[in-house]
């Protein structure tokens, strides 16, 4: 067991540990991916208190579809890491449940798979023009109240169609 913690990447890929091993590998991969995103996300959000104008300029870049897909993948990664992590915590603190580890893994995976499509619909549907942006109604109301808010005068075509009342 102890030597299994010291595998090289190549040996790890050849090691056939089955679904439980893939769950572990995906836990690592999503964890490292989310950490990389988190570093960027925290530093660029901190910009808000020093240079709100730069923050808004940066958000304009993030409106590109490639970032929207990236944000969806981050959401799924966190969801997987949460579901699989909860499974591990449950197994670690109630060890008799280890007998049902296959069923627990199936359940935690099922949660992620079941959530993946509806979340894609809400987050990526608008990118494909299939539905309104989430929160569009609340945004229109806000733009009536504060028509000069940066998100209400955004230069993107989508922002214009999202707030027809303001005439922008």
């Amino acid at each position: 067991m102890r030597t299994a913690r010291f595998l090289t990447l190549g040996a790890a890929l050849r090691y056939r540990g089955g679904t439980q091993m893939w769950a572990w590998a995906l836990h690592r991969l999503t964890g490292l991916g989310v950490l990389a995103f988190l570093i960027l996300h925290v530093v660029d959000t901190a910009l808000v208190i020093y240079r709100p104008d730069l923050y808004d300029a940066m958000l304009a870049t993030y409106r590109h579809p490639i970032f929207r897909v990236g944000e969806y993948l981050i959401f799924l990664s966190v969801l997987y890491h949460a579901a699989n992590g909860l499974r591990i915590v449950v197994q670690d603190f109630w060890t008799p449940l280890m007998r049902h580890r296959k069923a627990l893994l199936a359940a935690s995976t099922a949660v992620v798979v079941a959530a993946a499509l509806p979340i894609a619909w809400v987050m990526l549907g608008p990118v494909l023009g299939l539905r309104e942006e989430p929160g569009a109604a609340r945004h229109r109301e806000r733009c009536l109240r504060e028509p000069t808010a940066p998100a209400c005068v955004a230069p993107t075509a989508k922002a214009r169609t999202a707030s027809p009342e303001t005439g922008r």
């Binding site: 959000t45 808000v48 709100p52 104008d53 923050y55 808004d56 958000l59 993030y62 409106r63 929207r68 944000e71 959401f75 966190v78 969801l79 949460a82 979340i119 809400v122 987050m123 608008p126 942006e133 989430p134 929160g135 569009a136 609340r138 945004h139 806000r142 504060e146 808010a149 940066p150 998100a151 955004a154 989508k158 922002a159 999202a162």
Partner: peptide, 21 residues
């Protein structure tokens, strides 16, 4: 998960700006 649901599914990233933060 609360943070992700709020900003991605309720507010919508398209509507985010410095004033909202």
């Amino acid at each position: 998960l609360y943070h992700l649901v709020w900003w991605n599914l309720v507010v919508g990233v398209e509507h985010l700006d410095s004033q909202l933060v």
